[in-house]
Write a protein that binds this DNA or RNA. Sequence first.
RNA 1: GAGCCUGUAGCUCAGCUGGUAGAGCACGAGACUUUUAAUCUUGGGGUCGAGGGUUCGAUUCCCUCCGGGCUCACCA
Length: 525
Amino acid sequence: MTETPANPPTSWPFREAERVAQRLARTEKTHALFETGYGPSGLPHIGTFMEVARTSWIRLAFTKLTGLPSKLLAFSDDMDGLRKVPGNVPQQDMLHRYIGQPLTKVPDPFATHDSFGAHNNARLRSFLDSFGFDYEFASSTEYYTSGRFNDALRAVAAKHDVIRDIIRPTLGPERRANYSPILPLHPRTGVVMQVAIDEVDVDAGSVTWRDPETGVGYETSIFDGAAKLQWKADWAMRWYALGVDYEMSGKDLIDSVRLSSAIVRAMGAEPPETFTYELFLDDKGQKISKSKGNGLSVEDWLNYAPAESLGQFMFASPQRAKRLFFDVIPRATDDYLTSVETLCAGTGVAEDNPAWFIHGGMVPNASGSPVPFGMLLNLASVVNAETPDMLWGFIRAYRPDATPAASPFLARLVDYAVKYYQDFVKPAKRYRAPSEVERAALEDLAAGLAAMPVAAEAEALQTLLYDVGKRHPFASLRDWFSCLYQVLLGQSEGPRFGGFIALYGVAPTINLIEQALSREMVAAD
RNA sequence: GAGCCUGUAGCUCAGCUGGUAGAGCACGAGACUUUUAAUCUUGGGGUCGAGGGUUCGAUUCCCUCCGGGCUCACCA
């Protein structure tokens, strides 16, 4: 039974799912296959997360829309030849000896898996698993060697020249001369050969070619992993063989999508629905690249905010070139909180709400926070939060009902806020050196604090501050408090200081004063 | 050369299927504070890049131009 809601969802995952639904209706399929692909060269990164998350949301929308079964296939191109040795792995010399061979033939430099490819596959899987994604892993090597691609490979061989002519115009003169969609593995060296194919025997399922270095001619089977396909043909063949219904990719692959689709059509099938997303930029508007190391890693993000906020960021405007750098984290987190709030309140169409997707189509019962993340970060900075406990002290003053038990999500945010403060705000602080008058007052304060009981009341501490300030020749008490913030906390403004000391501790505060005074001595030398 | 994104308040950006512009930060004022801050209330500020077109009506759709940026053209 299908309900027809008054306001059908219009969010992009539903628009995409609609296209998949129409494709299935056209092809009379009752099961949708979504694919995401991975280059074997790198480790999982933020783009990997993005692609799987977005595809999963479309899949969720598809399920909601049609009720039909579907699957997400995470396909690793692990048979690809090792092109160059990554600089950040051990055993460089060993790896250099395997250049050109399939990654699943290259020994694992970390010696934890059967091959480098297997190692990377395992990393990919544990990465995806850590987010709880629902997917089926596929290894290109396994698919090739098991013979699963054989029929499709024969179809490619049958259209060899057509496919070659589709790709050729897009190549430079050098590659154009020897291009073939079929790359035989060298029987002696195991290298994936990019050589001219002299002859294609469709019936035998073999190709003949010549080793350009030795001049020796070979006839190689195209089946069972004895050969693989060049990238664009490989993509097309995979779509064809598996019946992929949907795959998204970055705009850098626009041309590949076009050509691979053309190849599938040449083979007499319909290419999947595709979707092109924009690439991320860094804070200066430059493209994010793994090799440059700009931008942001998943680890970075998850260090300072919950995964839900990363999902929120990835949900918004997939076809827009968004800047992805550190400063977007707080906002994404608060955007997420807003999403949860409106979702729980039942405002708007649930299926258009990012939180609905992030929580797998469910309305979370208590994933919100009574205090926005931005405010927590601000507060952490203002009160120099060394520990979550300190932050909680101030939060309780503001929101008596907010406790870790009552707001578990807030508790997570508090931890993140403290970490964010410690790693980014605190190191950037500029501590001013005290003047002579201030120095004397601070020493006076330290002595006064030393005489206080360990568990001094905020009120008593405030009185002490007040007394010390009056005892010294400050133009106004305000100057005295400004001095405390600027010299002790490295900021122009701060919390009520008596309350701060009560939470921070008397002894640590004395330490703070001593540090400030000695810091100035060092600077004076 | 081919293609993509983008140009909305000082800054960073929201504005879904067209109906006289919104948020956060910043700035101004106020409240709470025996000092300050967080917080709260409130105010100012935009010819929505330019010019055409469709429409009763366009920031929102179409075209052109200008500006900003990216991608591909070796490999995947």
